[in-house]
């Protein structure tokens, strides 16, 4: 446990002390603010449906940027050798990095709670619906983070990690977009396994076990893949 906590503290400290962390955060908040404000006054409705629908797209561009340096830079700077020769298990390193990333994203999502709070001043908001949507947003972030962490474990170049993460997330997104043109059997698969589809389900305010399990499964699979990738490299 102390390893995970120490890694989290280190990552947050680097995020706060150097531009790399807060530049991404500020850019994320600016983009999210834009999507929140742009349709609000056109529609004249006190809901956040539009903002939540845009959120996956924001994630696709920003989560790879937040995750790219986590393992890639450690390997490039040789500090991974330090981490791996301390009395730590590889899985603890993976979880430490993952928790630091999730901490960062959770903090950003927490800041966006200002949006529903300000909406509540303007009109009646459906608190249950928004709570379910936030849970969905957090779960989607959790699985996307695991995917991008895996991308970072694959390479020692942060830029490559960004592109790989972006491609992985974008292909998940596009799969949902092109689903209507696919054969019915394939459509069923996409609806069943596509994280964006499940995210959209949850935006309706219904939290079903299937949705939660899918996000958790994706997270666990990609954390395990990152772990395998790091272990495998030692044997090459």
């Amino acid at each position: 446990m102390h390893v995970i906590w120490a890694l989290c503290q280190k990552e947050w400290r680097i995020n706060l002390d150097t531009p790399q962390g807060y530049v991404v955060s500020i850019a994320f908040l600016l983009a999210s603010g834009f999507f929140f404000g742009s349709n609000l006054f056109l529609n004249g409705q006190a809901d956040m449906r539009h903002w939540f629908a845009m959120l996956p797209l924001l994630y696709i561009f920003f989560i790879p940027a937040m995750a790219m340096r986590l393992f890639a830079d450690e390997r490039k700077d040789g500090t991974y050798e330090l981490l791996a020769t301390m009395p730590t298990r590889t899985i603890e390193l993976v979880l430490g990095k993952y928790c630091s990333l999730m901490g960062h994203l959770s903090a950003l999502l927490l800041l966006t709670v200002l949006y529903p709070l300000s909406l509540a001043l303007l009109g009646d908001v459906d608190a249950g619906l928004i709570a379910a949507a936030y849970l969905a947003a957090w779960l989607l972030a959790a699985s996307f983070s695991a995917i991008c962490l895996y991308a970072s474990a694959l390479t020692s170049h942060a830029m490559v990690a960004y592109i790989v993460g972006l491609i992985l997330l974008l292909s998940l997104f596009l799969l949902t977009q092109v689903a209507p043109t696919l054969s019915p059997a394939l459509q069923d698969v996409v609806v069943m396994l596509g994280p964006i589809n499940h995210f959209q389900n949850m935006l309706r305010g219904v939290v079903s076990l299937a949705d939660v399990v899918l996000f958790m499964a994706l997270t666990i699979i990609f954390l395990a893949l990152s772990w395998f990738e790091l272990e495998r490299r030692r044997w090459r």
Partner: peptide, 9 residues
């Protein structure tokens, strides 16, 4: 390790 890696930040 060689080159004494550390977190420069």
């Amino acid at each position: 390790p060689e080159h004494a890696p550390s977190y420069h930040e």
